[in-house]
Simulated assay, not measured.
Amino acid sequence: MIHEVDEGLRRLLGESGLEASGVEVVFDAPTRDWAARRSAPTVCVFLYDIREDATRRGSGAGEVYDADGYLVARRSPPRWFELTYLVTAWANRPQDEHRLLSQVLATVVATDTLPARLLTGTLAELGLTVALDTTGTGDVAPSAADVWSALGGEMKASLQVRVRAPLAGATRRTAPPVTEGLVVRSTARSEGGEATPGRRLRYKEATDPGPDGFAGPRERGPAPARRRRGDRRP
């Protein structure tokens, strides 16, 4: 999920015209060594804090259906995480850096969510809202000064962008539907007696399996007992 949020942010900033103007969008840690190697105007989007939003943790399991409306799997509810990014601009002059940072700020505050068209992978499959804001970090998250101190670099103007995104739950496939019932046969006690016809306990509409039982070759019809979306039967 984290790399999918990265891709969504990269696409969002790309639509603002940064990449078209030759500005690189990277997700590296802006350390002193990295800054010394930089050669082109760059917007650095550094992920430095990941925390679960426990207040949104759900329970139970959702149902996954195929294209025909049949139940094929069950999925545990997604868990929500807050990803906090330190966004900085790097250029030869402070004025250029501020211009780039202003462009990023205008792009981020123009939307409260990452647009669905920019989402990929599990974020696109879940179809849930991925919130986006620049309100800063929570009380427990490191401050910008602490982040710069840990990186070993000199503090500079930056934005703190927070994304709230879902992590898809585990998916468990459902067992294939039962299409054949149990057949019980009895045999005569005397030697050489022939088996009596089988008695089917369920699915009376199914045909007798024959002398070879269910191990013999047979044609499989459609699954009449498969559950469709909206079926309320127990």
Rank of each mutant, 00 (worst) to 15 (best):
G69F: 04
A116C: 01
T107L: 05
V87F: 01
E154W: 01
A175Y: 00
E219M: 04
R164I: 07
P142N: 08
G138A: 01
A73S: 09
D96P: 01
T174G: 01
R218A: 11
L47N: 12
D66K: 15
S102D: 15
W80S: 03
E19D: 03
G127W: 05
E180Y: 01
T171E: 14
R220D: 02
E19C: 05
L83E: 10
T88R: 06
R164T: 15
E180M: 08
A29S: 13
V104E: 10
Y203H: 08
L101N: 12
R227I: 14
P30R: 11
E219P: 00
G213M: 07
Q103V: 10
L71I: 09
S76Q: 14
T42M: 01
E125G: 03
A36M: 13
Q103T: 14
A188I: 09
L132H: 11
D6E: 14
E125N: 07
L18E: 08
G14I: 10
R79V: 05
P209V: 10
V5G: 08
D139G: 02
R226S: 07
A131N: 02
T55L: 09
G8T: 11
G127E: 05
R162Y: 00
T174Y: 00
A116L: 10
M1F: 00
L9V: 11
A73H: 05
A36R: 14
V64Y: 00
L101D: 15
A116M: 09
G58K: 14
A20K: 12
R226V: 13
V147F: 01
A124D: 13
V87E: 09
S158G: 02
A165L: 06
V130H: 02
S158C: 13
R75L: 05
G216A: 13
T107P: 02
G69N: 03
A170D: 11
E15V: 11
D146H: 07
L126Q: 14
W34P: 00
W90E: 14
A170T: 15
Y48R: 04
A165N: 08
E63Q: 15
E82R: 15
P77T: 12
V130E: 09
P41L: 03
L119F: 08
A40R: 11
A91L: 03
P217R: 05
I50M: 06
R172I: 09
F27I: 06
A168I: 13
R228L: 13
G152C: 02
S21G: 11
T207F: 05
M155R: 12
A106R: 12
A195T: 13
A206L: 05
D146S: 12
G210Q: 06
R185N: 03
L13G: 02
P115N: 11
D6I: 02
A61Q: 12
Y70Q: 07
A89V: 10
D28A: 11
M155G: 06
V64S: 07
L201D: 09
L9N: 08
T88G: 04
R227N: 05
R228H: 07
R202T: 15
A175D: 14
V26M: 04
W148Q: 04
R10M: 08
R202C: 09
G169S: 10
